[in-house]
Measured scan of single mutants.
Amino acid sequence: MTDQQAEARSYLSEEMIAEFKAAFDMFDADGGGDISVKELGTVMRMLGQTPTKEELDAIIEEVDEDGSGTIDFEEFLVMMVRQ
């Protein structure tokens, strides 16, 4: 866990972390443990947004600390705390 990830967790109660985990699992449609650009786009479109591929890439790049091209749960928490 990076310093950013530990800091993000410090702002959240266990209840909030559990709620974010449920949301993360909804995004992680294939159950792979991370959110891909495609999965992020699908959920955002379900919520009425129309992000471009470039916008989706930028969202993932902003929090993808390990350079995997996807968002894992710890990175997702950082993203949610920043919102």
Results as ranks from 00 to 15, higher is better:
residue 18 A to K: 15
residue 10 S to T: 12
residue 43 V to D: 00
residue 57 D to F: 10
residue 67 G to H: 08
residue 4 Q to I: 14
residue 18 A to W: 03
residue 64 D to S: 14
residue 7 E to R: 09
residue 56 L to T: 10
residue 11 Y to N: 10
residue 1 M to E: 09
residue 44 M to Y: 06
residue 41 G to D: 06
residue 12 L to D: 04
residue 24 F to D: 00
residue 50 T to S: 14
residue 71 I to P: 00
residue 9 R to G: 06
residue 26 M to R: 14
residue 76 F to E: 01
residue 14 E to Q: 07
residue 49 Q to N: 05
residue 3 D to Q: 11
residue 56 L to R: 01
residue 27 F to H: 05
residue 9 R to D: 15
residue 61 E to S: 09
residue 19 E to H: 01
residue 37 V to E: 02
residue 20 F to H: 01
residue 74 E to W: 03
residue 61 E to Y: 10
residue 37 V to Q: 03
residue 12 L to T: 03
residue 55 E to F: 04
residue 26 M to H: 00
residue 32 G to D: 08
residue 78 V to T: 14
residue 52 T to G: 12
residue 57 D to N: 07
residue 27 F to P: 01
residue 7 E to W: 12
residue 52 T to N: 05
residue 30 D to F: 05
residue 65 E to T: 07
residue 17 I to D: 00
residue 54 E to C: 12
residue 72 D to F: 09
residue 60 I to T: 13
residue 42 T to Q: 13
residue 4 Q to G: 07
residue 28 D to R: 12
residue 70 T to E: 08
residue 17 I to E: 04
residue 48 G to N: 04
residue 41 G to C: 05
residue 26 M to Y: 15
residue 52 T to R: 04
residue 83 Q to C: 13
residue 66 D to M: 05
residue 80 M to V: 08
residue 23 A to D: 00
residue 4 Q to M: 11
residue 55 E to Y: 04
residue 74 E to Q: 12
residue 34 D to I: 06
residue 51 P to W: 07
residue 14 E to L: 03
residue 31 G to R: 09
residue 70 T to P: 01
residue 50 T to Q: 03
residue 20 F to P: 00
residue 68 S to I: 13
residue 11 Y to W: 07
residue 43 V to L: 10
residue 22 A to F: 08
residue 56 L to M: 02
residue 59 I to K: 05
residue 47 L to Q: 02
residue 56 L to G: 01
residue 22 A to M: 04
residue 80 M to A: 09
residue 40 L to F: 02
residue 39 E to T: 06
residue 19 E to A: 08
residue 34 D to E: 08
residue 48 G to V: 00
residue 54 E to L: 06
residue 43 V to S: 01
residue 41 G to V: 04
residue 59 I to F: 10
residue 9 R to V: 06
residue 68 S to R: 09
residue 23 A to C: 05
residue 15 E to P: 04
residue 55 E to M: 04
residue 70 T to F: 07
residue 25 D to L: 04
residue 60 I to W: 04
residue 42 T to E: 13
residue 45 R to T: 09
residue 83 Q to K: 15
residue 57 D to T: 10
residue 61 E to R: 09
residue 56 L to F: 11
residue 67 G to K: 12
residue 2 T to V: 07
residue 74 E to T: 04
residue 76 F to T: 00
residue 79 M to R: 08
residue 40 L to K: 00
residue 46 M to I: 07
residue 73 F to M: 02
residue 12 L to Q: 02
residue 66 D to E: 07
residue 37 V to F: 04
residue 41 G to M: 12
residue 16 M to N: 03
